[in-house]
Each structure stands twice: as structure tokens, then as C-alpha cells.
Design a protein around this nucleic acid. Structure first.
Length: 310
DNA sequence: AACTCAGACAACCGCCTCATT
DNA sequence: TAATGAGGCGGTTGTCTGAGT
């Protein structure tokens, strides 16, 4: 009956992943692709649960991930999407290529929540804090319902200067049945908002085509124009490395032609790993004579590539 | 220098849905 | 059809780091 268990949890390693484990997982996925996570730890020689491997890959090692802080535009999108979808981080993440649900969730909890509170907006209800009672807040928090009202959206738009986002309301309609009541109620409120007006053209187009957002990605990576922002030097990408020598850790990635490459528009942040053909030789050069100090002088684009590798 | 504290984020846990047997 | 596990998801915890004292 049923399937075999994903793993016997005896003797499995927990906690932060080491560079060595990352190497093993990456090599395995590169050679075998993503399939049957249950078998991955054994085949890759890892003492991890398959679930842990999947999480590590999807949240951290995937080559199409963008690292670093969310741009202002992405942040606005997250706020906008959260107002409509609530804490459905995976849905929100699906609109932000290269970002994971975990990353967005963390960013929401650590940055955006505070930002909104500072602005006098309840991060759960997206209502102005002054116009909502504690009881209401508590109730809504428990129910975790996305709230949207014209007034609130106006305030949000005014304060955050939110641009039109490419989300479409059909996504909300296509949600699970158990959410439909709440969502539909929410739609009644949001569909007439300025925010919704911004989506009108998209909505019409999508509805006419009969697409379901769960089936068709709304935004292809190459369609997104993320405003280039000054890269944050406080990016966690470097600090999170469990290795003491970043360049050494990059050695194993010498066969870059195996990684999926994506074209990069010069005006945009790249999606995917945009790596030059000679990047591996550049790495060799850096490794050979300890040119790590050069890392401090690389351009934004170059440093971004390095960050993607870490 | 040592300690405390808070912020940030990676990773885990438990639940849910759906596919498989 | 029921039982079971895989994969996905959201909430929570653990760990690391830097700032402040």
C-alpha cells in the first residue's frame, strides 16, 4: 500500500549545509536533474533527508535564483501581492522570478512589516493602523485574510508609489475552494480599486485567453524590467557561506557550460546565472595567485555573478 | 576584550493535497 | 476505495553576525 517512506530519519544530518554537501547536491542535480527527492540523498552520498535536499536546492542552490536584497520594485510587488493573496508566499514568489517563497517570507517578516508599520499601515490587513481596532486586528490576524479596500489601496499607492503590477485577478479566482469565500469577498472589495484598475487591461486579456495563472506564468524572466539598484554590500550571500575560502568553493563549479544560461539585457538585473564563457578561467586565475582582493574592485555586474555563485 | 542583544535568514517542523498502490 | 507517502507550503525555530555597552 502507498509509497515507501521518503527516508529513514536515523542518522540523518541536520542543521546548516556545508560547502561539501552543496557540491554533492549540485553535482548530482546537474548530472541527473530533479527527480525523486527521496532517492537524491542516497545517490548523491548525502546524509540528509530528501526533503532537506529539495529545500536546499529550491531555496538556495538553484541556478536561476537571484540573491541579495529585494529591489524596491520587487518589494512593492510583494506588498501589492500580499494585499491580495495574503500569506501565500509561494503564489507571491511565482510572480517574482528568481525569488523563493522562503526568501520573500523572510523579507516580509524582517523588512516590509516594519516598513509598513512605520508608515502606519497594518501589515496584515493593509489598513491604516489608526482606523482599525485592536480587536479587528486580532481577528483578522487569526483569520489571515487578505484585505483590500479602495481607501487602503489608495493610501498604499500614495505612500509606496506602487506601479501597476502584472498580477491578474483571475489568480485569486482560481484559488482553492476552501479559500474562495474569503477571496471572493476580497475581490468584491478590490476589484474596484485603483490598484485593480491598473490591472484591468491584463485582466481582460487573460480572461479572454482563458488562462489560469497556475498554468501559465504571468511573467517570464526576460519580460521583467527590474530597475538596477545599487547592490547592497550587506548582502547575505557572502556571509552565509559556510566556507572560509570563497574562491576555493567556486572551484567545483568550473564546468559552467553545464549550467543553464540566460540572456541578459544590459539594462536589467539578470535572471538565471549569466556567466561568461571564460568565467571558469577567470576563477582559475583568481585562485592561482590569490587575487581575491580583485573581488573588491569588480563591477556590479561582475560582483553579481560572483554572488550568484555563492 | 567580553558580553548582551537584536536583526537577518537558513533550515526545520508539521500539516495539507494529491498521486500511487 | 482506503491507505500511504511524496511533495509543497506556511509557520516557527535555530544559528550566525554585527552593533552597542
Amino acid at each position: 500500500m502507498g509509497r515507501q517512506p521518503c527516508c529513514d530519519k536515523v542518522g540523518l544530518k541536520k542543521g546548516p549545509w556545508t560547502a561539501e554537501e552543496d557540491k554533492k547536491l549540485i553535482n548530482f542535480i546537474l548530472n541527473n536533474g530533479q527527480c525523486c527527492w527521496r532517492a537524491v540523498p542516497k545517490l548523491a552520498g548525502l546524509l540528509r533527508c530528501g526533503k532537506s535536499c529539495r529545500l536546499r536546492w529550491t531555496n538556495y542552490l538553484r541556478p536561476d535564483l537571484k540573491r541579495g536584497l529585494l529591489s524596491e520594485y520587487e518589494e512593492k510587488m510583494v506588498i501589492d501581492l500580499h494585499a491580495q493573496l495574503g500569506n501565500r508566499w509561494s503564489k507571491i514568489a511565482s510572480h517574482l522570478p528568481g525569488r523563493t517563497d522562503n526568501e520573500i517570507k523572510n523579507h516580509w517578516n524582517t523588512h516590509i512589516k516594519k516598513k509598513l508599520k512605520k508608515m502606519g499601515i497594518d501589515p496584515i490587513t493593509h489598513k491604516p493602523l489608526s482606523t482599525i481596532t485592536i480587536d479587528q486586528t486580532h481577528t483578522l490576524e487569526q483569520e489571515n485574510q487578505p484585505i483590500g479596500e479602495e481607501k487602503n489601496q489608495d493610501i498604499l499607492l500614495a505612500q509606496m508609489d506602487i506601479e501597476s503590477s502584472p498580477i491578474d485577478q483571475s489568480e485569486i479566482k482560481s484559488e482553492d475552494d476552501d479559500n474562495n469565500n474569503n477571496i471572493n469577498n476580497n475581490n468584491n472589495n478590490t476589484m474596484g480599486t485603483n490598484c485593480a484598475n491598473n490591472f484591468d487591461s491584463t485582466i481582460m486579456e487573460v480572461n479572454n485567453n482563458g488562462f489560469c495563472i497556475d498554468e501559465v506564468p504571468l511573467i517570464e524572466p526576460h519580460e521583467i524590467l527590474v530597475q538596477e539598484s545599487t547592490p547592497s554590500t550587506s548582502s547575505s550571500s557572502f556571509t552565509s557561506s559556510s566556507s572560509s575560502n570563497i574562491l576555493e568553493d567556486l572551484k567545483f563549479l568550473s564546468s559552467f557550460d553545464e549550467w543553464p544560461l540566460m540572456e541578459n539585457n544590459n539594462n536589467n538585473m539578470g535572471f538565471g546565472w549569466e556567466i561568461n564563457n571564460d568565467f571558469s578561467s577567470t576563477l582559475d586565475f583568481l585562485l592561482e595567485d590569490d587575487h581575491s582582493d580583485m573581488m573588491n574592485n569588480v563591477t556590479f555586474d561582475e560582483s553579481w555573478k560572483f554572488e550568484q555563485l555563492l
